[in-house]
């Protein structure tokens, strides 16, 4: 039994892999501060079983948190046939970059595609604005 299911607000740990999305790229070129870019960027794609464990429905907002930052994004089902519990996907964007570690081992290369976060329901909290 997973410990998370005993908490009042279920929390899971996931590894986030970032990717590129043509529709999001197009929205970014049109307006980086627009609704479409936000809608296509501030998203995390989870395994359906992970969504269920979080008691979160598709389209609900979730809080992603680690020691580098906290963002509220929309949760979606990944749609992949193969199960990928514990691994989630986000389009590469200012939202995902809020969570990227500053640890680089002196290489100059941050781990953009390897982000560890905890996920909890945001209970209706709005998607984070990307500004400072």
């Amino acid at each position: 039994m997973d410990f998370g299911s005993f908490l009042t607000v279920p929390e899971i740990k996931v590894k986030v892999v970032t990717y590129r999305d043509i529709f999001q790229d197009k929205a970014m070129i049109e307006n980086r501060f627009g609704e479409e870019y936000r809608d296509r960027s501030a998203v995390i794609k989870l395994d359906p079983a992970d969504l269920k464990q979080l008691s979160v429905k598709k389209g609900d907002t979730v809080i992603l948190k680690n020691s580098f930052g906290r963002v509220v994004v929309r949760a979606e089902e990944s749609g992949y046939e193969t199960s990928h519990r514990g691994i989630a996907y986000m389009p590469n964007s200012p939202w995902s970059n809020i969570l990227v570690s500053d640890e680089t081992g002196g290489t100059g290369v941050p781990k953009f595609k390897d982000i560890s976060v905890t996920v909890t329901s945001a209970k209706g909290e709005k998607v984070t604005e990307p500004g400072f």
Binding site: R32, F68, G69, S93, P94, N97, I98, V100, S101, D102, P110, F112, P130, F132
Partner: peptide, 16 residues
């Protein structure tokens, strides 16, 4: 380029 968007925020914030 837009490093405030494309770099990890923990690093990009030093641009301020």
């Amino acid at each position: 380029s837009d490093p405030l968007s494309s770099l990890p925020r923990s690093i990009a914030k030093n641009l301020f």
